[in-house]
């Protein structure tokens, strides 16, 4: 059976990581396995993790290497891990996740420490900025969300330059625009809803999280060497109140 890995440590995110790992596993019809990576052999397994009814694996080593190796295992569907509760310093929020996202093509779910994942997921927000062509990189997020039976809302954030020139009768245009958007850029993708936002991408995505009451937000993570990569994803990682699904965009 395929499994979802919930990677725990002793940080504040451990409880929500376990909760989200359980919810993701249920949604994907997979089993949950708790992974604890110890850098120091004397480090103890957190009590909360020990108390979970899911099987647990403890591995020692450099966390990023261990996680990367586990993520590559054939039966691993996704990895859920926590973000540190700090947006500054050498290890800002989601630092580990972003490195891992650069090394694996498996979905990574990054759980903010203060989040409260539900037992069952309902709505996933798929964030997209810029030209519609980039919608393709989010296809996997959409497919995974669809497989999990979630309602999918794609938030397409445009800037002033890409605002549509015309908008006639909103009662007909919205649906037509969305249909055509999906037909062009995500042919054959599952049913979903499109929301168009104008403004600063991260800000608009965060607003959409609030208005849609989504429990998961999916963002693309470019696997390039560009040090400025993923600026929007970083900001969302830093500020999102809900777990973030990081998908490698090659």
């Amino acid at each position: 059976m395929s499994k979802v890995i919930a990677a725990v440590d002793s940080s504040a995110a451990m409880r929500p990581v376990l909760a989200m790992g359980r919810a993701v596993a249920v949604a994907l019809g997979a089993s949950l396995e708790v992974l604890h990576v110890v850098e120091d052999e004397n480090e103890e397994v957190p009590a909360v993790a020990q108390a979970t009814d899911a099987p647990m694996r403890t591995l020692s080593g450099e966390p990023i290497e261990v996680l990367s190796s586990v993520a590559a295992e054939e039966d691993v569907l996704a990895v859920v891990l926590g973000a540190r509760d700090s947006s500054s310093g050498p290890h800002p929020a989601g630092h580990l996740a972003m490195i891992l996202a650069g090394q694996t093509t498996k979905p990574l779910v990054v759980v903010p420490p203060g989040s409260h994942p539900p037992e069952q997921l309902h709505t996933a927000l798929v964030a997209m900025k810029g030209t519609p062509g980039k919608a393709r990189v989010l296809r996997r997020s959409i497919e995974i969300s669809a497989r999990a039976g979630l309602e999918i809302v794609v938030v397409h954030v445009q800037d002033e330059d890409s605002i549509p020139s015309f908008s006639d009768q909103v009662q007909h245009e919205t649906e037509a625009y969305a249909q055509e958007f999906f037909a062009r850029h995500l042919i054959g993708a599952p049913q979903m809803r499109l929301e168009l936002r104008i403004g600063v991408p991260a800000v608009e995505v965060l607003r959409a999280i609030e208005s849609t009451q989504a429990e998961l937000v999916a963002v693309g993570w470019p696997q390039t060497d560009d040090p400025n990569r993923g600026a929007v994803a970083r900001e969302i990682l830093d500020r999102s109140p809900i777990p973030i699904l990081l998908m490698a965009a090659t």
């Binding site: 938030v155 009768q169 909103v170 009662q171 919205t174 625009y177 849609t212």
Partner: peptide, 18 residues
């Protein structure tokens, strides 16, 4: 047969008064 409400492009449900 004008709809009386619709979702606008930003996802809000708005009344259609036309």
């Amino acid at each position: 047969v004008t709809p009386t409400s619709a979702r606008d492009r930003s996802g809000r449900i708005i009344p259609i008064l036309t």
